[in-house]
Design a protein around this nucleic acid. Structure first.
Length: 889
RNA sequence: GGGCGCAUAACUCAGUUGGUUCAGAGUGGCUGCCUUACAAGCAGCAAGUCGGAGGUUCGAGUCCUUCUGUGCCCA
């Protein structure tokens, strides 16, 4: 069959993926084999494949495919996350655009129906895109954090934590997103330095004195002030403490208090205390028993609680703008000063987060954190790279309670009921239960009122933070809550989690907590942190910059194998990847290289008749050498895999394939034009090529499967996807070294050709200076024949005579003469030799220095000393050769 | 302000417990090749005071101290 000159991935990839799926290779059920499980970090159900996903999932696929080839029961669980904020926003948008509906006009039930409709129609596209990448997930296991059973797991856990007193409802300062109108966890707030203005405002004394000047960034909140605070050590304000001052514009009197929190250096050293609108002020207020006046509504507008009417109803930023005029007019504005400060914005909506006092649900983190911290420090859960331990420890030692309620509909609704009679946010009774009916029983019991009905109860409107469902992922996807002794006990703990370090707190830490809390065991044995994918200028990939390549287009352009190679070739764990199409090009080129090697091999005519002896010797040496070399590579591969050094593993294979296999081995055994190849070498080559395909398969699954089948006729089910990974055995280093010597001699000859413009095909005559070491080299069967072929020689003699008109070079400790029909430039040759001699003498001096040092000889390990002696001997031999040559010139 | 990294060729990065002719790879550059698998290719070459300074050691790109530059996390 004729093979095209170039490898064309598109139809090949689709065909093999379908084949693997049809054969059920990705399916995993518990059996007697050792399990190897990975749960996918569930992408948002709204997500589209991007570079980060491709990197992350390529790594997981490599690990899973390798485990499968190692004969383990490999199970990779795919799925998606309901992503409450992101998805709800999409659904709201869709309702508005497509259905002309507003969320406010729908009941919760109606909204949820639409949301599921949206999810079924548009959600989970990413799972199909992952197939194009080659991801060998067990698709039968596809999970979703809002699946019925998953939903009930989340509820069960909520109730469990509540019963264990690890979950509470409380009034706390929270991060409020006025655009999404929901609370955010601390981790969902992103701080950036921004330009702001510091307003210096005069608060006059009640007694008519000048009072005090304070500095604030938020003049629109002064009407919520309840005090002015100064540092007790600040001499400027000693006399003011205890006095009363007036809030500008409204002249409400507030006290001046002393508190250590105030920074003497900052602003004027006097701080307005506004407990409702600043977390630190809230703390101060608590210490001094101050009132809380909240003047900002949930939508970020100034509320009616504000007694300065001209700004009521205005957005907080508009109000701030207008305040400037009012303050100027009243004469209270001393000055405005520009400064830079960190502003927190919502991760999702980018609106400035408003600190707000709010009644929310919190998980107590102290108990949960302790075992999770211990597990990582003691390497029960191993991090790759290990330095992420520090980041993790830092966070885990400063845990704050986790706010898990969100003011949204799309998510698991909090299983808490209140008495309607008690009014909103006035609840003194809370009934946490699996169902309304159960809550009713509890309510009847608690109140002693048997007349209560479901109608008297009101369920908490809020849903749970998305991470309060995804932290159960490794347990829930194996149905570990319903059947704790079921298959979860086979697959759990999973072998490795592969994820970006940016969600180490959101997700990784919390899964570890959940693992210990709900199963008493870690959720995974190792965590492989990937870096962020950035562009060539080191910028983060982002939609707004438009610098993120279209993932599907890349797959189209370079093939999945090419893209996988590109992503992996520069992706040391944890390090950022500066993505460049060029890398994918390398991957595509490797596919093409393999393809052409296949074309070469398949084009050979095979002869059963014994070839001439020289060729037999040469080929036998080549085959032996490649085998030994492959063992060497395999050993390195095994150790790389163990340490998750996947880029290094791939690079090792790349070099072996491109240089050793293609550039050297195939050229060594390649028969002359229209000559056949002997059967033995041919079979050995096909076997070797097949093994290489298995070794490379985890990284580049498609091209390896295709070539595997092109190499030999295979029976049904004899696919590379389910082979056994070649096992490394000890290798013969001496043989490898000998062939390395041959390669270096060949390169030396080619260099002489290049420098003297001798065509690659013109045969050359070589003389080797006779020596013990030269004879030792040529004693290797096939050595001479290999040189003859690879360097294109017509003759190769050992002689102590120096030929005329020859260029020379030294390889190892041997001197080679290349006969050329040129007159040699004696002066130039002399200089070259003299330079080389000087270098070698320096080399010898440094080694002699070492060896004459008594302490080196006595304290360095024997092999090191031995090696230095060898180096010295080699150096001396070379010096001798050079000196002789110089004297003859 | 607290913490964690990084600095190696023009660029992007490897370099494992300190020890081989160990200073490497890819890209880029230069020279020469449409050679009978592959120009998405082949052959060859050049290029670095391993950020600076000090220290430990027989021996430091690797360990320690410090300085400089730079990135990130937390507040």
């Amino acid at each position: 069959m004729e093979l095209s000159a170039r490898y064309t991935p598109s139809e090949i990839e689709e065909r093999w993926y379908a084949h693997w799926e049809n054969r059920g290779y990705f399916r995993s059920v518990p059996d007697e084999r050792e399990p190897f499980s990975i749960v996918i970090p569930p992408p948002n159900v709204t997500g589209m494949l991007h570079m980060g996903h491709m990197l992350n999932n390529t790594i997981q696929d490599i690990l899973i495919r390798k485990a499968r080839l190692d004969g383990k029961n490999a199970c990779w669980v795919p799925g998606t996350d309901h992503a409450s904020i992101a998805t709800e926003a999409k659904v709201v948008h869709w309702l508005r655009e497509e259905k002309k509906l507003r969320k406010a006009d729908l009941t919760r039930e109606q909204f949820m129906q639409y949301a599921y409709q949206w999810k079924d129609k548009y959600g989970g596209i990413i799972l199909h895109q992952l197939r194009k990448l080659g991801a060998s997930c067990d698709w039968d296991r596809t999970a979703f954090t809002m699946d019925k059973s998953y939903y009930s797991d989340v509820i069960r856990v909520f109730i469990d934590l509540y019963k264990k007193d690890k979950l509470y409802r409380g009034l706390r300062m929270v991060n409020w997103d006025p655009e999404a109108k929901t609370v955010l966890s601390n981790e969902e707030v992103i701080y950036h330095e921004e330009n702001a203005q510091l307003y210096h405002l005069q608060y006059k004394g009640v007694d008519g004195s000048a009072g005090v000047t304070i500095a604030t960034q938020r003049p629109e909140t002064i009407f919520a002030d309840v005090a002015i605070a100064v540092n007790p050590k600040d001499p400027r304000y000693k006399n003011l403490v205890g006095k009363q001052v007036l809030i500008p514009l409204i002249d409400r009197a507030i006290p001046v208090i002393a508190d250590d929190y105030v920074d003497i250096e900052f602003g004027t050293g006097a701080l307005k205390i506004t407990p409702a609108h600043d977390p630190n002020d809230y703390e101060v207020g608590q210490r001094h028993n101050l009132e809380v006046i909240d003047t900002i509504a949930n939508d970020g507008k100034i509320s009616e609680k504000c007694t300065f009417l001209p700004i009521v109803g205005l957005d907080r930023f508009e109000a701030r703008k207008q305040m400037k005029g009012f303050l100027e007019e009243s004469g209270s504005l001393v000055k405005i000063e520009d400064y830079k400060t960190n502003i927190g914005r919502s991760e999702r909506t980018n609106s400035v987060v408003e600190p707000k006092l709010s009644l929310q649900w919190f998980v107590k983190m102290t108990d949960l954190g302790a075992p999770a911290l211990k597990a990582v420090i003691e390497e029960e859960v191993k991090f790759y790279p290990p330095n992420f331990q520090n980041l993790y420890r830092n966070w885990m030692e400063n845990l704050r309670d986790w706010c898990i309620s969100r003011q949204l509909w799309w998510g698991q609704q909090i299983p808490a009921w209140y008495l309607k009679s008690e009014g909103l946010s006035q609840e003194t009774h809370v009934f946490v239960a699996e169902s309304a009916e159960e809550a009713l029983l509890k309510a009847q019991e608690a109140t002693g009122n048997k007349q209560l009905t479901l109608k008297d109860l009101r369920q908490d409107e809020d849903v749970l933070d998305t991470w309060a469902s995804s932290w159960l992922w490794p347990i829930s996807v194996f149905d570990g809550f319903n059947k704790p002794d079921g298959e979860v006990s086979y697959y759990y703990p999973t072998n490795v989690l592969v994820t970006g370090w940016d969600i180490i707190f959101f997700w990784v830490a919390r899964m570890i907590m959940a693992g210990y809390e709900f199963r008493g065991e870690k959720p995974f044995k190792a965590v492989y942190f990937t870096g962020m994918v950035r562009d060539k200028q080191r910028r983060k990939m982002s939609k707004s910059l438009g610098n993120s390549p279209d993932a599907l287009q890349l797959l189209e352009d370079f093939g999945a194998d090419g893209v996988r190679y590109g992503l992996m070739s520069s992706a040391a764990a944890g390090g950022d990847i500066l993505f460049d199409d060029k890398l994918c090009e390398n991957g595509r080129n490797l596919c093409n290289k393999l393809w052409n090697a296949l074309r070469l091999v398949k084009g050979w005519q095979v002869t059963e008749v014994a070839e001439n002896e020289e060729i037999i010797k040469k080929n036998a040496l080549a085959v032996r050498w490649l085998n030994e070399k492959f063992q060497q590579v395999l050993l390195q591969l095994e150790s790389d895999f163990e340490q998750f050094r996947l880029s290094e593993a791939l690079l090792g294979l790349y070099t072996f394939i491109w240089d050793d296999f293609c550039a050297w081995y195939l050229e060594m055994v390649k028969p002359g034009y229209e000559q056949p190849i002997d059967r033995e070498t041919y079979e050995a080559t096909l076997d070797m090529y097949s093994k290489i395909m298995v070794a490379l398969h985890p990284f580049m699954p498609f091209v390896t499967e295709e070539i595997w089948h092109q190499l030999r006729a295979r029976t049904e089910g004899d696919d590379v996807c389910v082979q056994r990974y070649p096992k490394a055995v000890a290798y013969n280093n001496a043989l490898i070294t000998k062939v390395e010597s041959a390669k270096s001699i060949i390169t030396g000859i080619r260099d002489v050709r290049n420098q003297n413009q001798v065509k690659p095909r013109d045969p050359l005559a070589i003389t080797v200076q006779d020596s013990e070491s030269a004879r030792a080299l040529f004693a290797q069967v096939g050595f001479r024949e290999m040189l003859m072929k690879m360097a294109v020689l017509e003759s190769l003699e050992l002689s102590s005579e120096e030929p005329a008109n020859a260029k020379s070079f030294i390889s190892g400790t041997d001197k080679f003469y290349v006969a050329l029909n040129l007159t040699i430039d004696v002066a130039a040759e002399r200089k070259k030799l003299a330079d080389e001699l000087e270098y070698q003498r320096g080399f010898i001096r440094s080694i002699e220095g070492k060896l004459s040092n008594e302490r080196f000889v006595s304290s360095a390990p024997a092999p090191v000393v031995e090696n230095e002696r060898k180096k010295l001997a080699d150096g001396l031999a070379r010096v001798q050769i050079l000196e002789e040559s110089l004297s003859k010139l």
